[in-house]
Nucleic acid binder design. Structure first.
Lengths: 146, 146
DNA sequence: ATCTTCCTGTCGATGTCCTCCACGGGTGCA
DNA sequence: TGCACCCGTGGAGGACATCGACAGGAAGAT
């Protein structure tokens, strides 16, 4: 990927609503040229989409946790991501190396909701869980540097 | 927060570049009304900003890992987030309950870069590290449901 | 009950920006 | 040289954001 594309992506990570006009000014290109480049980045899948960045406390989901899961019966086929994809509290699912097989990032409103969520996860995926509560988030989703 | 604000936020999590006109159609409000609500959400800090969603493999950072850190000397003041904030590979930093004090999410290009990054983290923050390599990411940053 | 105030909506006007099209200058190659 | 391709510029139109003026409803004070 070219240097100028990298710069465009970095700018859009900081402000995903930046206008093509301003992107052009920041990169030394014309509006149309930037537009074309962004379109190409979207087509190639480099840019997957645009999203709003939300304060989770403000939307009523102040409690974040990481849940590591391990299958109870390792001989069974492992389709945990599919089984869990219907649970909306799960924001992310990572397949990881190590003792456990997946790490889930979840957001709920209260501790009681977490308890309920854990029960659903265990029964849906037939796994044991290990939960790490997030106390605070110094930073998250930081943009790439140019 | 009201129900209609929740809906607006959910829509913007799916498409952060959705026009106010379309937001209005989807919520049954006029363009201006939606515009005002979004502005209020931004002022209140519910909407923190807008960002592009990037394919990390495509931008040359295919290797993701979680690094749990623990201070070597627990009697020292714990300012790890500040000490580490200058390291661009660190995408997120969570303060967590449990044996370790922070979990970092990092992205690098190659295993060798991870080795180098770990050395920088250990020396910058005076901590021990435990690294969990991400093999694949079934999903990530999923939008809230309505 | 009436008035005031605040909140939140609609409507309309204006300026900006997105979007598309035609065109031009490099570069690689037969 | 001539051709094809890529990637840039510039301009025109239409859509969209943005702002101001105004209306209606809820809550509180007199």
């Amino acid at each position: 990927m070219e240097d100028i594309d990298r710069k465009i992506v970095a700018l859009l990570m900081r402000d995903g609503r930046m206008s093509y006009t301003d992107l052009g000014k920041s990169t030394g290109l014309s509006t149309s040229a930037v537009h074309q480049r962004v379109r190409r980045l979207e087509e190639r899948g480099v840019i997957r989409g645009y999203a709003v960045v939300v304060d989770h406390e403000a939307v009523g989901l102040p409690l974040t946790a990481f849940i590591s899961i391990k299958p109870i019966d390792p001989s069974q086929p492992d389709d945990s991501p599919d089984r869990l994809s219907g649970i909306p509290e799960i924001e992310a699912c990572y397949s990881v190396a190590g003792d456990e097989s997946y790490i889930l990032k979840v957001r709920v409103g209260r501790p009681a909701d977490l308890e309920d969520l854990l029960a659903r996860i265990r029964s849906s995926a037939n796994v044991t869980t290990r939960t790490t509560i997030v106390l605070s988030t110094p930073y998250e989703n930081r943009p790439m540097t140019a």
